[in-house]
Amino acid sequence: MGLLKGQIDIAPCTVEVVHVFEELSAHVRLDDGSVIHPGDSVTVSGAPVIAGYGESVTERRTATIRRAGPLRRAWTRLTGDLEFMELCEFSFSEDLKLEDAA
């Protein structure tokens, strides 16, 4: 606890993965209405969620929300904008040199 780290909340969640030709998507929904704030971290418990090709998987899990303290929250609000390039797509990765595919 403190300015950087806040409390830890546990929330039930639903993980939905669709891995079919028509759609590739994955979402985590917090089922108790918990709200994520800037700087918080969320970890879904349990083994990796596996959805083979052609499958749609919905699993109930538990999410651990590590709340950001007031300082971290303020800092994330202040500086998050600087990462705006993450929102843009450029067709290619940022690696200027690629390893040749063997």
């Binding site: 993965v17 590739l24 994955a26 800037p38 918080d40 969320v42 879904v44 990796p48 969620v49 904008d81």
Partner: peptide, 16 residues
């Protein structure tokens, strides 16, 4: 193949 391992990793939320 796609690897969906991110789902159970810690995800940090930034802000825009």
């Amino acid at each position: 193949a796609v690897n969906l391992g991110f789902l159970t990793r810690e995800k940090k939320y930034t802000y825009f």
